[in-house]
């Protein structure tokens, strides 16, 4: 079974989104989504890892024997993540300091291993690449949505410390929405992340339900039209 590229993209961004549907990689998702910049940093690092590991796994899929494929995947993912960690330490030093332990922990994000095993090891390089990108972007979007919610409610700001990612010149990107806001601790702490993710999933389910209904209505209508 080879899915079309459109299907692969749709899966990653919506119908099989790692954050909303597969619920994989929850640990970094919940821990690092307290501000938008943190969320974006971790999301991009995860996307890069997914793309690199998917492509590599797909390239070597015909050489690797089934018995040793899991350790080989683990080695590939670990090498990729460590390389990204070193690069971030070199080029985004302060962001690296804030994300801290969660960069090396990308290794343990099961979404990456899951894609390597379930998709990349059975598909050609092009599809594996698109899948990695779509899954990564899907994950980043969830992180960003959650990060925005938590930052606005928790700190009353948008894009605080934007300079960590975009350099000193980007400080104007940071917006304080409510001056003299004392902050709302629940949103910043892990319970806020759980509640926020729950709400987001609920919203997604409502949208899915509406879409489903409309589809049914359309089928009924066409069926009715055909009957008359």
């Amino acid at each position: 079974m080879t899915p079309s590229y459109g299907q692969v993209i749709r899966d990653g961004l919506w119908s099989n989104n790692p954050g909303f549907v597969q619920l994989l990689g929850l640990c970094p998702l919940l821990a690092i989504s307290n501000t938008m910049i943190n969320a974006l940093g971790l999301g991009l690092a995860t996307t890069l890892t997914l793309v690199a590991s998917n492509v590599t796994v797909s390239l070597i899929r015909n050489f690797v024997r089934p018995e040793i494929r899991i350790p080989v995947f683990v080695m590939i993912i670990a090498s990729v993540v460590t390389a990204i960690e070193l690069a971030m330490n070199a080029y985004f030093h302060e962001l690296y300091k804030i994300l801290g332990i969660f960069i090396p922990l990308i290794v343990t994000n099961c979404a990456i291993m899951g894609r390597a095993e379930a998709f990349a090891s059975r598909q050609n390089v092009g599809r594996a690449f698109v899948d990695g990108l779509a899954m990564g972007v899907g994950f980043t979007i969830v992180l960003l949505l959650l990060g925005t919610m938590r930052e606005v409610i928790g700190f009353g700001t948008l894009l605080q410390r934007a300079d960590l990612m975009f350099g000193e010149g980007a400080q104007w990107l940071s917006v304080t929405l409510f001056a003299d806001y004392r902050g709302y601790l629940l949103a910043i702490l892990p319970p806020g992340a759980f509640i926020g993710l729950g709400l987001l999933i609920a919203i997604k389910n409502i949208i899915d339900g509406k879409l489903e209904k409309r589809k049914k209505a359309v089928t009924l209508e066409t069926a009715g039209a055909a009957a008359t």
Partner: peptide
């Protein structure tokens, strides 16, 4: 299998050593 695994380990380590070398000074 063992040789294959070893080869992957060596390649991975080699890549890391290169990255480390390239970023060490900057870090």
């Amino acid at each position: 299998s063992a040789i294959l695994l070893g080869a992957f380990a060596i390649t991975g380590t080699g890549l890391l050593a290169l990255t480390h070398q390239a970023t060490r000074e900057r870090i």
